[in-house]
Simulated scan of single mutants.
Amino acid sequence: MTTLSPLELARFNMIEQQIRPWDVLENAVLELLTVVKREEFVPAAHRAFAFVDMETPLPAGEVMLSPRVEARALQDLHVQPSDTVLEIGAGSGYMAALLAHRARSVVSLEIKPELAQLARDNLKKNGVQNVEVREADGAQENAAPESYDVIMLSGSVPEVPQFLLQKLKVGGRLFAIVGLEPVMRATIITRTSQAAFTTAQPWDVSGPRLQNFPEPSAFHF
């Protein structure tokens, strides 16, 4: 019987105790979590928390989504090898790396220069070559003018703006955490034709706000 190192045991426990119980059962996704080393994308000061069920702190006051949220989103998006992907909120580059292993290419937008550079460095260090990190505001329509098969919002928004839906190719899927505290839901929108979309909200989750997406007015008349 092979004895796991403390690091690999922590990774194994993360998968078996946090991620599987969250209905992440697709073997390809679970295997990818052993291939893309999460600890390599966590700042050194917080590496001890790489496998903990929490949002891991990043520079510039930001956080990584918890491991189970990242894994479930990846599974629910059904990323294919021919897909082009847009991510909003690069953070440390970890989600982009997961997406990149399943997709043809990934464009990841990051509004904070410090994080954009961190993501680039982490992706390069880990040999991920099919991700382009752009320092840009993903809440702006012209930040990524292309159309995509998959759009991943690595954070929460009050609602999904129409301009992002229009960037989806027919058959494309968008993932976002949508809502206002204390009620937010994982939201998957699929473009079924040029004019039609379907929406599913399969699980409850909260997440850090993405910057500059319009908040609803607190005043009601």
Rank of each mutant, 00 (worst) to 15 (best):
V131E: 00
K112N: 09
F213Y: 07
V183K: 15
M1H: 12
R11V: 11
V36C: 00
L165G: 05
N13A: 12
A97W: 04
L77G: 10
R68N: 11
E110Q: 04
Q162D: 12
H78C: 12
A218T: 10
S206N: 14
T187H: 09
L109P: 08
S217M: 10
M64Q: 11
P6Y: 13
E39Q: 14
E70G: 05
R185P: 09
V131Y: 02
G127C: 08
L153S: 01
R47F: 00
F41V: 05
Q75T: 11
E181C: 11
I189Y: 08
A45G: 03
M184G: 00
R209H: 11
E159L: 12
E39K: 01
R38S: 08
M64W: 01
E39F: 06
F219R: 13
T199N: 09
E132L: 14
P214F: 08
T187I: 06
A186G: 15
T198Y: 00
P6T: 06
S193H: 07
S66K: 14
K37E: 07
N27R: 15
P182T: 08
G179D: 01
E135F: 00
S154K: 03
L98V: 13
Y148L: 03
P145G: 10
V133K: 05
A136S: 13
V133Q: 09
V79Y: 02
E26L: 12
T198G: 04
P6R: 11
Q18A: 05
S154H: 04
A139I: 12
A73Y: 03
V79G: 03
D137T: 12
G61C: 08
V63A: 08
N27E: 15
V63R: 04
E8T: 10
G89F: 01
R173V: 02
Q162A: 11
V183N: 15
A136V: 06
M54L: 14
K167V: 09
R134W: 06
V106Y: 00
P216C: 05
T192G: 05
E70D: 11
G91M: 11
S82H: 15
S82G: 09
S156C: 09
M152P: 05
R72N: 03
A195F: 12
L168S: 06
S108L: 12
Y148S: 08
V36H: 05
E16Q: 09
F175K: 10
V131F: 02
F41P: 01
I88L: 02
R38M: 07
A90I: 03
Q18K: 07
A97S: 11
L77D: 01
F175S: 06
A218L: 15
I177Q: 08
T34C: 14
S5G: 13
Q166W: 05
R38A: 10
W203H: 00
P43L: 09
L210S: 03
I177N: 04
A97H: 06
E114Y: 02
R104L: 07
L164G: 00
A196T: 12
R20L: 12
S5T: 14
K169W: 06
T56H: 01
A143Y: 10
V205A: 13
A100T: 13
A143C: 10
D76T: 08
R104W: 09
E62G: 06
G61E: 09
E132Q: 13
V150M: 02
Q117H: 15
K167T: 05
K37Y: 04
A195Q: 10
R120S: 11
R185W: 13
N212H: 14
